[in-house]
């Protein structure tokens, strides 16, 4: 195991930010920590990168205790903080050079590793970092985090505020880095990025809901999920919600994902109910859940546990 996290707890001024977080990341793995803003992702990453001390628990990286040997750890980890930590008044090249010297190396020495990422922004190397687009900043920040050939790359929300095209390209780059033997720990609030990771941890309000391969998380989904569509989406979701047998009804793109309290109620019965309510072009089918469905389901469970407990 490259990274072992055991029973981490952290609170800020009485607010519990992380509760009993335990998981591990294998060597060479691309591990995604997935959860919305404020779920504790950044806090956890800061503990892993020695920037914060937990109230309780242990972190082990390559067999080294992170909490005691912060200096050793800092050589091994490449960290890309949220909000890309770049100097806006320095050019692309100056930023990269600076981080290279800070880590006691040069661009030339490790050009091979960053080439794939850096060559895309190299034509703009004399441009100030503050004048770059989100996608280009992201690539520069990644180059900077890679410049010292870290064994573990920790990326805190690298795709936040970046458009869909840049996001996709970024994941392709991560996949290529992974092939070169770098272990990658990445956090994101985009649920759809889960399928791009080897394993994911779903986190919500400082609690890990589940840690597994994306496809395993999906197979663990217990309920039967129906996709329902009709001509009027807004009326559809309202009508479904007011039906007493509905467990949950949420918009997903052009359809509504529906779970029922009583699994014996068939798709035909749903169609009938909707016809009765004046819907047209009704389509109902059983579908495989996505990560987002699973996350929402796990979120509900967690809330129910909290309420009953």
């Amino acid at each position: 195991m490259t990274l072992n996290i055991t029973d981490i707890n952290k609170s800020f001024e009485g607010l519990q930010a992380l509760t009993d977080i335990t998981f591990s990341v294998k060597e060479g793995e691309l591990f995604g920590l997935i959860g919305p803003d404020g779920s504790g992702k950044t806090t956890l990453f800061r503990i892993i990168t020695t920037l914060l001390l937990p109230d309780r628990g242990e972190v082990n990286l390559f067999g080294i205790n992170v909490l005691e040997n912060y200096k050793k750890i800092r050589q091994l980890v490449g960290y890309m903080a949220g909000r890309f930590s770049l100097y806006h008044d320095l050019t692309v090249e100056e930023n990269l050079k600076f981080y290279a010297t800070v880590f006691g190396t040069t661009i030339e020495k490790n050009y091979d590793l960053i080439k794939d990422v850096y060559c895309q922004i190299e034509p703009f190397k004399t441009r100030k970092a503050g004048k770059l687009s989100g996608g280009m900043k992201q690539k520069l920040a990644l180059s900077c985090a890679l410049i010292h050939k870290p064994k573990l790359l920790v990326l805190d929300e690298p795709t936040t505020g970046v458009d869909a095209v840049s996001r996709m390209e970024f994941w392709e780059m991560l996949k290529r880095l992974q092939k070169r033997g770098i272990t990658i720990l990445v956090s994101t609030s985009y649920m759809d990025e889960a399928s791009l990771c080897d394993r994911v941890g779903l986190i919500q309000k400082g609690n890990l809901l589940s840690v597994n391969k994306p496809e395993k998380i999906i197979t663990e989904y217990q309920k039967e999920l129906l996709s329902v569509s009709s001509d009027n989406l807004y009326k559809l979701v309202n009508d479904l919600r007011s039906e007493k047998n509905t467990h949950s009804a949420f918009l997903f793109g052009q359809s509504v994902h529906l779970t029922r309290k009583d699994q014996n109620i068939t798709a035909e019965q749903v169609v009938k109910y909707l016809q009765h309510n004046g819907h047209e072009n009704i389509r109902v089918k059983v579908i495989k859940p996505g990560i987002e469905d699973c996350f929402m389901d796990l979120m509900n469970e967690e809330d129910e546990v909290l309420l009953s407990g």
């Binding site: 800061r46 990168t49 020695t50 920037l51 200096k71 903080a81 930590s85 770049l86 800070v102």
Partner: peptide, 14 residues
């Protein structure tokens, strides 16, 4: 403020 201090602290710079 810029968040670069995080990166510097994580680096081997003392």
């Amino acid at each position: 403020e810029l968040g670069t201090m995080e990166t510097l602290l994580v680096s081997p710079l003392r």
